[in-house]
Structure formats: structure tokens, C-alpha cells
């Protein structure tokens, strides 16, 4: 049984609200006394995931569970899926549209950052069905 379970729906239409779920998770983790280093890793990994959901998948759902030894994040969407995961994992590879780039995103750093800041990550994606990203940060 986890110490804490959190669920957030990510709104796919509103780019200005991206980050709300990550910020909320960050606050809750702080109140639990989780180390700042672990919180930072979770916050960055989640925010990148949130941005990806807004850009590519018209939103989705984030589940976070906190256990004594780790924080688990599951990001599930029913978007268009990732055609080539290996390519998507390369820094600089991006399929984001220009309007997203104009906001300072879409540089092809999202998934690489998620990999960098989580201690374990798995991606399950089917084109036309959606993507689930599973990440763990160890405490």
C-alpha cells in the first residue's frame, strides 16, 4: 500500500496550464518531507511528460504513487503514439509544431530529460492508440 496516490488529468487544449500537475505534485512531495533532490527529479520528469501530452496527445492522465523507497509516475494518453521510440529518445529529435517551438519547447529534449531525471523508465506506445510512460525515482 502506497503512502500517497495522486491523479491528475492533463488538459490537452491549454498550453498555458501545462505544469500545473507537476507543480501540485511537487508541493505534495515537499509536505511529505521528501528530499529536494528527489523532488526536483520528479518535477522535471513529470513536467516534460506533461508538456509532451499537451503537444502531442491532446492531454492524458498522470498517476503518481509514493512509497518509502520510490516514487512511481505513470503518464497515460490516447494520442497518436510514437512511431519510432528509439529516434524519439535521441536529443534533438522532435516532431513538435512551430507554434510550440516559438514558446521555447519542441527542441527534442523531452523524453531524453525524462530518462535523465528518472532512475527507471519504460515506454509503451502504439501508433493510433496512445502512449504510456512509466517512470520511477528512487528515494
Amino acid at each position: 500500500m502506497s503512502m500517497l496516490n495522486l491523479t491528475y488529468e492533463v488538459d490537452g487544449d491549454d498550453f498555458t496550464r501545462a505544469g500545473e500537475a507537476s507543480s501540485a505534485v511537487k508541493k505534495r512531495l515537499r509536505s511529505l518531507g521528501i528530499s529536494p533532490e528527489a523532488i526536483r527529479k520528479v518535477a522535471i520528469a513529470l513536467y516534460e511528460g506533461e508538456i509532451n501530452m499537451v503537444i502531442h496527445a491532446n492531454g492524458g492522465r498522470i498517476d503518481v504513487s509514493v512509497d518509502p523507497d520510490k516514487i512511481t509516475m505513470t503518464l497515460k494518453d490516447t494520442g497518436k503514439g510514437i512511431a519510432d521510440i528509439e529516434k524519439a529518445m535521441q536529443e534533438g529529435y522532435s516532431t513538435a509544431p512551430d507554434e510550440v517551438r516559438n514558446l521555447g519547447f519542441g527542441a527534442g529534449m523531452g523524453l531524453p530529460n525524462m530518462k535523465k531525471y528518472s532512475d527507471h523508465m519504460e515506454i509503451d506506445s502504439t501508433v493510433g492508440v496512445g502512449t504510456t510512460v512509466y517512470m520511477e525515482v528512487y528515494l
Binding site: A43, Y47, G104
Partner: peptide, 10 residues
Amino acid sequence: NTIAVGVLAD
């Protein structure tokens, strides 16, 4: 989004 990044990167 600059603000969100500021918060999350702390």
C-alpha cells in the same frame, strides 16, 4: 511556461 520551468527546475 518560463515560470513553470523556473518552479520545476527550482
